[in-house]
Computed example of a mutant assay.
Amino acid sequence: MEPAAPGTIVTLRDVAAASGVSLSTASRALDERGTASRSAAAAHVRKVAEELGYRRNSFASSLRRGETRTLGVLVPRLSDTVMALMFEELEKAASARGYFAMVATSGDDPDDERRAAETLLDRNVDGLILATARLDDELPRRLRERGVAHALVLRTDGVSPSALGDDEVGGYLAVRHLIDLGHREIAVVTGPSFTSTGIARLTGARRALEEADTKPPEKWQLAAGYGIENGFSAGEALLGKSGERRPTAIFAANDNLAMGIIAAAHRFQITVGGDLALVGYNDIPLSSRLATPLSSVRVPLDQIAATAIDLIVNPGKEPTIRKSMPTLIPRESSGSPRQATTQDRGSAASA
């Protein structure tokens, strides 16, 4: 079959006529929103459409249904590896459901977040996915009041539909791993207190410490940002004071923090995986490629992305805050099992 002449617009009616099927049959065969039919008739229609050079105008057909099949995704920044990976998974999950995902960045300022969200809504997106939520964030509340379809991803405000990892379980797994290796002098560097991730990971870490009946100094529980520079500052505070009691292990609530702590440890000639055990969080691709591969808590971003899309396109009566289970990935940075020395046991008892 010859393709249409250059400049000729091939319509669905043309495809139906060339295929010898009805207009509705051709439309169903070429509908990309769901799982493609595997029937011989549908395959024939798709083959004819390809030979004719037919291109479905999904935007026009979506407008006729009062939708654009487009979702807006708002992230703080794409220079953050986790956010970039999260958007990639959201894009895949959206595409599998016949949607297109577009991204905007907002930084950490609530006003910038609001403006970025309005920019996406001005593009007539069918819903918003926010990876920016703060516990004190007004944006999710305003979206609820306006009836805007939305879902929070990775973080939650405890009210809006949310897809995230079980951060409390993740924090528990990280610190339990260090305890099982024989450590009792454990510091925790967690994320900002305005994020659900920071609070939940710290809660899980504290639960593990309480179960082991160990109480490290309060000053060893630091709240920081999620950047490498924040980890370096925390590492300096924990490791840099000569003659003072130091932790033998640290749980860092994301891998960026852990990498900053590695840099601080190197500055003070402390060997990660030997002198200091370290566990991060998120298991970004770089974690396993470091000079001393980083133990980390892996979060199933693909599951979280699929859940976030479904919360918008297939809303149901199930719980709207859905958590996926994280997994601890042990590597060399957490070291080998160690026996607590008499000094360690005495320090732990007096802490």
Rank of each mutant, 00 (worst) to 15 (best):
P3F: 09
T341F: 11
T248P: 07
Q303S: 12
L121P: 10
E67A: 14
P300R: 04
P285D: 14
S350N: 12
P337Q: 12
Y54V: 02
V279S: 04
V272M: 02
R322F: 09
L278G: 05
T307A: 00
F232N: 04
S106V: 01
G171E: 04
V169N: 09
V45E: 05
V188M: 11
P285M: 06
G98M: 00
E218C: 06
K47M: 10
L257Q: 10
P293T: 08
P319Q: 07
T292G: 12
I261V: 05
L71C: 00
K92I: 01
T8P: 04
K215P: 03
V75A: 04
G20Y: 06
E236F: 00
A349I: 01
R46T: 00
Q339V: 15
I304Q: 09
A96W: 00
G165I: 01
G182H: 11
Q303C: 02
D344C: 03
G274H: 14
A117V: 01
M83E: 10
D255L: 13
R289C: 13
R298Q: 15
T11Q: 12
T248N: 10
A43M: 12
P330A: 06
D136C: 02
S27Q: 06
A18R: 14
A117M: 01
T105H: 05
M83T: 06
A131S: 13
R201W: 05
Q343E: 15
R33Y: 07
N57V: 02
N57Y: 12
G204Y: 08
A94S: 06
L164E: 07
M102Y: 02
L164G: 02
S37T: 06
T11P: 11
L209D: 14
V279Q: 08
A252K: 11
Y281W: 08
D275Y: 10
E2G: 14
S106E: 05
S296E: 12
E50H: 14
R55M: 11
V189T: 09
D31F: 01
V159Q: 05
R13I: 13
R345W: 03
P330V: 08
W220S: 03
L238A: 02
P285F: 09
G260V: 07
I261E: 11
V15N: 06
L178G: 11
I329M: 15
G20E: 09
V175H: 12
T197R: 04
G231N: 07
A117W: 08
G72Y: 04
L328D: 11
S160K: 01
T25V: 10
P217D: 13
A5P: 11
E113C: 03
E244F: 03
